[in-house]
Design a protein around this nucleic acid. Structure first.
Length: 214
DNA sequence: ATCCCGAGGG
DNA sequence: CCCTCTGGAT
């Protein structure tokens, strides 16, 4: 676990490499599409998720339209995402809940989002962060993994890591810190084959040389 | 064989 | 904390 100076050094390094992190997600800004995207993404690689999402949105891109879609139609469109039967049921149930309980609109609070079937803390925060642009430190699997590998946060659950990051990240880095971690986990500090040779933090990393740990 | 933007249940 | 779900790419 890095001390405060170590944490500072990590974010300073990010800030030097990317002074103005204006990165915006490639995915949709529409809350509904973001929501469907995260549900599709479970246990699936990003490329396949995007393909599945495109095919589904061509047929239904609103909660009402999705709720009205027959189950087999949904399943057929999202095959590339894998687990399509299970996910089709989940998506339909989610769409129905949106229509039934939320007037066919995606709720704008964490509580409202988590109230939906198939939506947990991670998915809710991702919608808040990337679609609704709230200053929420969404700790998805990328941010979680990077935080632990680097020693920024040692907590065992994403929830606690979020708290720890919020407490330890110097104020001046703001949400940029979150974007750096997110991107770094996706592109460099990957789960399976981390690209340690391409890592700008290699000398600061506690897991340097361990690679597949955590 | 094993991993992948995760939720829900025990 | 553990486990299951169980498709598709590597």
């Amino acid at each position: 676990m890095l001390d405060d100076a170590g944490v500072e050094a990590v974010f300073e390094r990010f800030a030097t490499a990317d002074p103005d992190p204006d990165w915006s997600p490639k995915g949709p800004r529409d809350p509904f599409k973001t929501l469907v995207g995260v549900v599709l993404s479970a246990r699936t690689q990003g490329v396949n998720t995007e393909k599945a999402a495109r095919q589904l949105f061509a047929l239904a891109d609103t909660p009402g339209a999705l709720a009205a879609l027959p189950l087999p139609e949904i399943a057929a469109r999202i095959v590339p995402a894998g687990l399509y039967n299970q996910k089709a049921k989940g998506l339909k149930a989610m769409a129905e809940a949106l229509v039934r309980d939320h007037g066919g609109r995606v709720p704008g609070t964490r509580e409202g989002l988590m109230d939906l079937p198939g939506v947990g803390r991670k998915s809710a925060d991702i919608v808040l962060r990337f679609a609704l642009r709230h200053p929420v430190c969404a700790v998805d699997t990328h941010v979680f993994r990077v935080s632990r590998r680097l020693g920024l946060a040692a907590s065992p659950t994403p929830d606690k890591v979020a708290d720890e990051l919020a407490r330890r990240t110097p104020e001046r880095f703001g949400m940029g810190a979150h974007l750096w971690l997110f991107r770094h986990g996706r592109d460099v500090c990957r789960g399976r084959r981390p690209r340690c040779v391409a890592c700008l933090l290699e000398d600061l990393c506690e897991k340097n040389g361990v690679r597949d740990a955590v």
